[in-house]
Amino acid sequence: MSRETISKALDGIADEYKAEALELELPASAASSGTEEKIMHPNEQKTKRFSRRVVTLALAACLILALAVTAYAVGSAVNSPKAAEKVAREELAKWKEMGLLSEEITADGPADKIYEIEGHTGNDYWYGRIFPHSYDVRWYMGKEGKYFLNLSVDTITGKIRFASFEARADETDVPVKEIEAEQPVDPENPEGEWAPVTMYLYDNFDDIFPADMTVDRFCSLLAEYWGFSGYTLADTVDEAYYDAHWSAVDGNSLLKDMPTDNYYLTVFFEGDQDGAPMYIQLSQFPGRVNMNIGTGHAVG
């Protein structure tokens, strides 16, 4: 398609859409000249990296000191469901600020459910450890919502230790796969007649995280958030979960391209006190996609 055709086609954008765009005002303080993109001078980049490293080290030292001193004295940074919801929102905002998540993810309105999770084991293939004390803060998708969120907040550190996100596909998303299934004709009567139905799978993972996010970058950001010094991508060996013996994906690959069918990625973080692994899993369900990130122990 020629540039000429595209240029002429853009001339024909409907007036109502042009007027909509013109509703937006550029603040007087906007720096962009409109004809040049800001390019950082290499020396400016080096200075910023050095400064950032010094600040990061200082903050890490303060964090370690603060946690060591206050862990028992405080008892918990999150000591009620209400506090858990507040912290969950704050940590969600941090993840977005760090670039871990798409900017579109929102926790709309008050949380739908908050569960207190206290000292019990979970399924082996996800946790296999004693749960720390945490609150699971959930926002449900409902019939028309875009997102489901489950943010599990560790009560000692106030950090997200497990997260599950689901994003409903938009009308403009194109299905990538059709699956045939059966479901009750009357949803209120599952014992009644069932009929075949076609369901559609989508790959709108960039509703959850940036489309250009690599596995390495995602794990680096999680390490940074949790205060670890690094990570290793490991093969997944899990006889309890589909007798898994799966190779780790290439760190340079895009996160959205990770297999979604009976697969999860195992990651070990460096500096973690007991070497417990963390998991990342992507799934496709009819009409929506899902990402789970989790570890079964206190982090930070």
């Binding site: 000429e4 055709t5 595209i6 002429k8 086609a9 024909g12 954008i13 409907a14 859409y17 909509e20």
Partner: peptide
């Protein structure tokens, strides 16, 4: 190669499906 008018109509139909912010 498609005509500009045809492409323009398709772009407008596509824009109609977007959220206001995405359209803007």
């Amino acid at each position: 190669d498609v005509e500009a008018k045809e492409l323009s109509e398709a772009i407008n139909a596509f824009l109609k499906r977007l959220s206001k912010e995405d359209r803007q």
